[in-house]
Amino acid sequence: MKKILLATTMLAGTAGFAAAEGAVALSGSAEMGIWSDAYGDLQFWQDVEVKFTMSGTTDGGLEFGAVIDLDETNVDAASGQDYPSAYNDDSGTSVYISGSFGKLTLGDTDGALDWALADMDNGLTSITDDHTTHVAWFGGSDMDGKAGADGQILRYENTFGAFGFAVSLEQADEGEGLVDDTFGIGVKYTANLGGTDVNLGLGYQDSGDRDGSAIGVSAAATFGGAFTGKIGYISFDDSSRNLDSHIGAELTYVSGPIGVGVNYGKVEQVVGDSYDSWGAVANYDLGGGAKVEFGYGSDVNGLGDDQWSLGIGMSF
């Protein structure tokens, strides 16, 4: 007990010190429920995530900050079961500086292609991300963090009215003898069509001989007051990973506390048959940061096996 009190006192003192120079915000989330994995095994599920957001401003008006995202899950990847990588313990950090010149971010962040394109995630959540872990899910991140990269992305971005652009660089891991870095460029534009805002994205990323290159486009719009639709497409020049193209689409309905959505993805290969999959998600907002969440993924391992989950998601 004395150790706990001492640690709490030290943390409180540190937070007060940080507040004198900048700001430190603490947020988090937790999940509990049941999960049916790709093997049809019904299991309990719990997950806790804590995020620290630190920010400050220089005397000259330059803003700076960092984000530390800590994710802890009860799934044991060493148990012999082939869980998707999204279920392994994960942590991500990034730092940034921003000002009138734009924003520069380094760390666990999106490359320019992913930054520009819309994710087919329905803007909703499920406790084990079933609706976004099926094999052909479209997330726009196909060129980020691949084998041989060092895992850190440097991205510069700026916005001018309805137009935004970004460039990114992810270095190769030269310890593996690879020298081709990944360079990306992306643009975003919001067009008003008859009173409806349509968010358009265009991106290109190239990793040389390592993973080839890719160019992608996407469009997203909210219509009828409650429906949101998105579509995205990526074309690859990538024989090493046998990818030719990737298409994704989603439709989401949100009204009051109820949100439901479906998304679909299809991958065309250079050699071999194409494959597709789809996901579904439903949320009911209980208020106060708690939601009932259901998710389903039609093929989460490339073998046609599905999975689903049902539980409570909590935001703090």
Rank of each mutant, 00 (worst) to 15 (best):
R210K: 07
M54T: 08
D110T: 13
R155S: 00
Y189V: 02
A220D: 13
S126H: 07
V135W: 08
D276L: 11
D76M: 00
S91D: 15
D197N: 06
D114E: 12
T228M: 15
T109M: 14
A149C: 05
Q269R: 14
Y87T: 11
V50I: 01
E250H: 15
Y284D: 07
G225K: 12
K2F: 02
G184A: 04
E63V: 08
I247Y: 13
T73V: 07
I215D: 10
E31G: 00
A191Y: 06
S315H: 04
A280R: 06
S309I: 09
A7M: 09
Y264F: 11
V187D: 05
F163K: 01
F17D: 05
S315I: 06
T132P: 04
A77K: 01
G102D: 13
I68M: 10
V217Y: 05
A30K: 01
G194T: 02
G208S: 05
Y275D: 08
K103M: 10
A249K: 07
G151E: 03
S126E: 06
A219V: 10
G288P: 09
E63F: 02
D285N: 08
G279N: 11
L42G: 04
G65P: 01
G99M: 04
D90Y: 05
A136V: 07
T196G: 04
Y233G: 12
A23P: 03
S98V: 06
K51A: 11
G208V: 06
A77S: 02
D144H: 08
S36H: 02
Y87P: 10
S315L: 09
D276R: 08
E63C: 05
G13Y: 00
L70R: 07
D129W: 12
K266D: 14
I185T: 15
L124K: 12
Y96Q: 10
S207Q: 15
F294P: 11
Q307V: 01
L178M: 04
G201C: 03
D110Y: 12
A18I: 09
W35T: 01
H246A: 15
Q269K: 14
A221F: 12
G80F: 13
G208L: 07
A282M: 14
S309N: 14
G80W: 13
F294G: 13
G92V: 13
V48G: 03
A290K: 13
Y253W: 14
F223E: 10
G289Y: 05
S240F: 02
G302A: 10
T228S: 15
T133E: 01
D114I: 03
A7W: 06
G224R: 10
G151I: 05
S277A: 12
F223S: 14
I312D: 14
V198G: 10
D89K: 02
D206R: 15
W45G: 11
G287K: 11
V270I: 11
T14R: 07
G225F: 10
